[in-house]
């Protein structure tokens, strides 16, 4: 019998693994090898060992891109999870009418492709007469803000775009988590005299932990690959203030033709994401 209990797991995994190997793992391993080459992709490559990695950390632009990426990702995940939690609670709150409509509306931003979103935000963030600055001046707060050009705030303008885009999507995950908590648990704690906030903090949040962890893991993968929005809106400028590692990878790989160096750059990012994910998994397991 082919599909017995012993062989089945392997047979079931096989199609997935074959495709995973050919279309994910193999290209990735190949680019791991590339990261040790000095190669423009067109002429014969030279093997340079770990020199690309060493060079990376002596490149000022890279350090800036690294710090932008990590800080943007952490702030994004942090705030996004809070916003998503908040929205999730709203979606679950029985006192609000029209929740179904609200659920659909907050899901909308994630459906629009990033290039289009970035175009719309171009007009929202524009310094001269952009939508946001128009609102600010209508409300009477004088000076217009250079949302994308001011190096002190432009990274956060982009992060806020991302939060806007993703929090509704993840709020639905939170909602799912909330709905799986038996109402009696919450009711019981209220009868016990626990105040609303205390109920949330001591009972609901711990029960939501797995779903929050899932949201963090799923969103962190994309958070660290920040590329399209700053690329379309600012090209990473002014002076690298919105440069990210993914942009560094793209620039070096596709524009400067340094495939080896770009691969190394990507691997450093991967290492960071893996460490980040492992820490989360450990925290999760440790509990």
């Amino acid at each position: 019998m082919v599909f017995d209990k012993k062989k089945s797991p392997y047979l079931f995994l096989l199609p997935f693994l074959i495709m995973f190997f050919s279309f994910w793992l193999w290209p990735i391993l190949q680019s791991l090898y590339w990261s040790m080459l000095e190669w423009d992709g067109l002429r014969a490559p030279t093997f340079v060992g770990f020199r690309n990695y060493i060079k990376l950390f002596s490149e000022q632009d890279y350090i800036i891109a690294l710090s932008n990426t990590v800080s943007a990702a952490i702030v994004y995940i942090g705030i996004m999870v809070i916003v998503a939690l908040f929205l999730g609670f709203m979606l679950n709150s029985s006192i609000l009418p029209g929740r179904a409509a609200f659920r659909t509306i907050i899901f909308l931003p994630v459906t629009v492709s990033l290039p289009v979103i970035a175009l719309v935000f171009f007009i929202i963030f524009a310094k001269n007469n952009g939508v946001l600055n128009n609102i600010i001046s209508t409300l009477g707060f004088g000076r217009s803000i250079d949302w994308l050009g001011d190096p002190r705030i432009n990274l956060w303008s982009i992060v806020s775009l991302r939060i806007w885009r993703a929090s509704g999507f993840y709020a639905i995950f939170i909602l799912a988590g909330l709905q799986s908590i038996p109402e009696e648990v919450i009711e019981a704690s209220i009868i016990d005299g626990a105040s609303g906030w205390k109920t949330i903090r001591l009972i609901v949040l711990p029960l939501l932990r797995p779903v929050i962890i899932y949201v963090i893991i799923a969103s962190s993968i994309w958070a660290f690959q920040l590329f399209e929005e700053p690329w379309i809106l600012t090209r990473g400028g002014p002076v690298n203030s919105t440069a990210t590692i993914a942009m560094h990878v793209y620039r070096n790989g596709f524009q400067f033709f340094q495939l080896g160096y770009a691969s190394a750059s990507a691997y450093v990012l991967t290492a960071i994401i893996v460490v980040f994910a492992l820490i989360q998994l450990l925290i999760n397991k440790g509990k």
């Binding site: 793992l25 993914a246 790989g253 691997y267 991967t270 893996v274």
Partner: peptide, 9 residues
């Protein structure tokens, strides 16, 4: 593996 930026692959 999903965390590797796709330009590389």
């Amino acid at each position: 593996m999903i965390s590797i930026p796709r330009f590389t692959t």
